[in-house]
Design a binder for these strands. Sequence first.
DNA 1: TTTCTTATCAGTCAAGAGTCTGAGTAAGAA
DNA 2: TTCTTACTCAGACTCTTGACTGATAAGAAA
Lengths: 213, 213
Amino acid sequence: MGIRLLIVDDHHVVRRGLVFFLKTQKDIEIVGEAKNGREAVNLVKQLQPDVVLMDLVMPEMDGIQATREIKQCLPKTEIMMLTSFSDQDHVIPAIEAGAAGYQLKDIEPDELVSSIRKLVKGENTLHPKVTNHLLKRINKSEPSPHEVHQLTHREKDVLLELTKGKSNKEIASALFITEKTVKTHISNVFTKLEVSDRTQAALYAVKHGLASH
Amino acid sequence: MGIRLLIVDDHHVVRRGLVFFLKTQKDIEIVGEAKNGREAVNLVKQLQPDVVLMDLVMPEMDGIQATREIKQCLPKTEIMMLTSFSDQDHVIPAIEAGAAGYQLKDIEPDELVSSIRKLVKGENTLHPKVTNHLLKRINKSEPSPHEVHQLTHREKDVLLELTKGKSNKEIASALFITEKTVKTHISNVFTKLEVSDRTQAALYAVKHGLASH
DNA sequence: TTTCTTATCAGTCAAGAGTCTGAGTAAGAA
DNA sequence: TTCTTACTCAGACTCTTGACTGATAAGAAA
């Protein structure tokens, strides 16, 4: 019996490439392809593959959210992240969402295959860079870069305007409130995000995908 | 005689995928692979391929710079950009650098092949989204988003520190100059980038890939 | 040589940013 | 009802920013 695999990537050429290569492996059976997270979730429910090869950044729904939903419905499905991002801000949420593997796209194809095989045996395979981040994370036991989610609705509104490069006065008139109120919200945002000025807040926001980078 | 093709992409799986697929095409001969711009330039000089399939974002040297250098040495080499970025800030410089084709990675593989064939016949093939940008660009004839390149070396240094969220004082001690000098540089950066404060400058920098986003 | 560019620094000044304290209102939870 | 949270606003105060003017020195280009 082969490994039933679902491929998820928004780029057609990448999917086609993976299919072409993985088809040469006798013990792997590609049961389907999806071009975004939403499609992936639906197809997983329908096809119940053993392993999902999941891209991270995709339109409609990203790989993190898709992983979360898949692990909720069908927790025995193994998710292997395959992406080009190796920074903490992508790695940690992916692992937290339930990905059992995390490989970078510069991986040797042969290694990719062997890590897929390890995955079904219950072994987790992470790229060295990724492992590094995890260790750092555990050692420091950071409060997690999720402060954005602790922002209130209004604070997010203000932050969004801020990331457009607007001044307090401009934000005030955009949201129909006074400059004083804007200042209050912004101060709160700063403490929640643990930054000390608007530039840092704006950079934080675009880095963590809050703004329309 | 087949089309001699060089594949340039920093992701191994992408390269492998393209090779696997393109090998099925009888009139295409893959003469080599490169994993960054610098390798690409060297290999082009050595192998003299007809067409280069070029990724945009790569370590060491990006696709734009590589295209520029290749077109300078061997102008008859046709460059096809194959990337996932369809925004103006990537498209325009690529075209200006001398790329004759620009396709997105979500292209149908068959279409990719046919656009490669068109390329050697001298026909330019651009993705519809890309064409759109070009038309807009011509109509508006914008001053071009290239102000970054007009920055002096020192101004770039300062801007880089700025995009780390540092204050003028912090930038000053990081670069071993006074705060006054930092202010001077920053003011110059603002006028060149046509922004009015540091937040906008920082956002501009990360958007245009100057910082280590 | 002269001119231009770049990098350095200073002084002044107005405006903006950010903090702190305090306070009123509305909605929802306990 | 009471308590809490979110949103709103104000005054006072400090510090940072950014513009403007002007100056010096080194090096490249004309």
